[in-house]
Simulated scan of single mutants.
Amino acid sequence: MYAVIDVETTGLLSKDRIVEIAVAQLDEDGLVTATWETLVNPRRDLGPQELHGVRAADVRKAPTFDRVAGDVVELLRGRVPVAHNLAFDGRLLAHEYLRMGCEIPDLTHFGVCTMQWAGHFLPDAGRSLADCCLAGGIANDRPHEAMSDVLATAELFALYLNSMGPVPVWEGRGLGLDEMHWPPVPARSTPAVRRGAGAGDGGEFLARLVDHLPRVPDPPQADMYLALLDRALVDRHISATEADALVDLASGLGIGRTAALGLHRGYLRSLAAAADGAVSAAERDDLARVAGLLSLPADAVDDALNADEPPPVRPGRGFRLTRGDTAVLTGAFAESKSFWAARLEAAGLHVAATVTKKTSLVVAADPDSMSGKASKARQYGIPVIGADAVDTVLARMAPA
């Protein structure tokens, strides 16, 4: 009878993209009979992540909208669409189909907006979903998660249904399921991806390598792997994107888990040797942090510091910023881009608007950002770090 929908998006404009969608099917009494949800890969920056909370690490594994478009049509077909602010959800949904060359029915004409009807059923409440839920005694523990908002809206809609007679007050106001013509988009039964899908990525990448391969790689294979590892560790964090790149490169170079562990130990010894003398508590903590990211045991730091022989891998310069280097910002930051630009400029960096081969660093609102700037930086081998790692990187800047 009804289908309640909610979308989380990269922004409020028609050019913005859906990053999460949820649908709950309801019977004529407003009882939930089925639910469906998935993250959607927008292939761009995720926008206000502090609002919707969707991580790029999760969305990278999610289907693009065209892969779920047919499934969404089947969930909505033959049902009255319901949403809180149906104009917004319907507009963003319509533009996703327009990008595919398809046109869907005007949901605001055929559907029910619980926000618009709030003044009739909850006259003393505000119009936001949070205000309506508060007035109706409805729990919504995870606002701005699509399924949580859908279930809260479904409960709100059921409250409306139970507050009137057998004939809905909106009967005859544009509703007409026989006039809703949905495009012939085939349903793919695409596997859904939910929040938390990327939670196990990052520092656990070593576990994804093959146990044994025929030989231990020598330079230049080892050098290529270590160069990528050095860029990944610039912020002392291995993002999901960096983990995937390390796994792909290791597999392509014939580096298995055992060989990688050997290279990791050598890399740690090269960092220890670069300390050149007495090691401060901060330097020891830094070595311990790197050892943990490289899946090395707790005693690996002592072994590296007490090694009598030179490190088996060339220590190299490693990545270090210097005053005058160029940094680029990308994404919707919780503070503002001007705030982070001022931080970087105060440290002596030049902040540019675009990424070129001369760019030294990209600071992203999310280290797994899929923005055009972040993608270009990765193509050029430029480190991409999250805003929360800026202090770590700046603290390791080379002296002027």
Rank of each mutant, 00 (worst) to 15 (best):
Asp89Glu: 15
Glu103Met: 04
Asp89Phe: 15
Gly111Thr: 05
Thr108Val: 11
His109Asn: 03
Leu122Cys: 08
His144Lys: 06
Cys132Gly: 05
Gly126Ser: 06
Thr108Arg: 11
Leu92Lys: 10
Cys132Leu: 01
Ala135Leu: 09
Gly126Met: 05
Leu92Cys: 07
Met115Leu: 06
Ala135Phe: 13
Tyr97Gly: 07
Met100Thr: 00
Gly137Cys: 03
Leu98Ala: 15
Gly137Phe: 03
Cys133Glu: 10
Thr114Ile: 11
Met115Ser: 07
Arg91Pro: 05
Ala118Gly: 08
Leu98Met: 12
Ala94Ser: 14
Asp141Gly: 09
Ala130Gly: 00
Pro143Cys: 02
Leu93His: 14
Phe110Arg: 00
Gln116Phe: 05
Cys113Glu: 06
Ala135His: 08
Leu92Glu: 03
Arg91Ala: 15
Phe110Lys: 01
Arg91Gly: 15
Asp89His: 15
Leu134Val: 05
Met100Ala: 01
Ala118Val: 03
Gly90His: 11
Ala87Cys: 01
Leu107Thr: 08
Leu86Pro: 04
Leu93Cys: 14
Leu98Lys: 14
Leu93Asp: 11
Arg127Ile: 07
Arg99Ala: 07
Arg127Pro: 02
Leu107Ser: 12
Gly137Thr: 02
Pro123Ala: 04
Ala135Ile: 14
Pro123Trp: 09
Trp117Ser: 08
His109Asp: 05
His95Gln: 12
His109Ala: 06
Gln116His: 07
Val112His: 06
Thr114Ser: 12
Cys102Ser: 09
Glu96Thr: 10
His95Thr: 03
Ala139Pro: 06
Gly111Val: 05
Arg91Asp: 15
Arg99Tyr: 07
Met115Tyr: 06
Ala146Asp: 00
Leu93Thr: 14
Phe88Pro: 14
Leu93Tyr: 14
Leu86Thr: 13
Arg91Cys: 15
Asn140Asp: 06
Gly137Ser: 03
Cys113Val: 01
Trp117Val: 01
Leu92Gly: 03
Met115Trp: 03
Ala146Gly: 00
Leu129Asp: 04
Leu134Gln: 12
Arg99Asn: 05
Asn140Gln: 03
Tyr97Phe: 15
Leu107Arg: 14
Asp141Gln: 11
Leu134Gly: 09
Ala125Ser: 13
Thr114Pro: 04
Leu92Ala: 01
Met115Val: 05
Asp89Met: 15
Asp131Tyr: 00
His109Trp: 07
Gly119Arg: 13
Met100Val: 02
Val112Cys: 07
Glu96Ala: 10
Pro123Thr: 04
Glu96Pro: 09
Trp117Met: 12
Leu98Ser: 12
Ile138Thr: 12
Leu98Tyr: 09
Ala118Met: 08
Leu122Met: 10
Asp124Glu: 12
Ala146Pro: 00
Asp106Trp: 06
Pro123Asp: 06
Leu134Tyr: 04
Ala118Ser: 14
Ser128Glu: 01
Ala135Gly: 07
Leu129Gly: 02
Val112Ile: 13
Arg99Lys: 13
Phe88His: 15
Arg99Pro: 06
Gly111Glu: 11
Asn140Tyr: 00
Trp117Asp: 14
His95Met: 11
Cys102Asp: 04
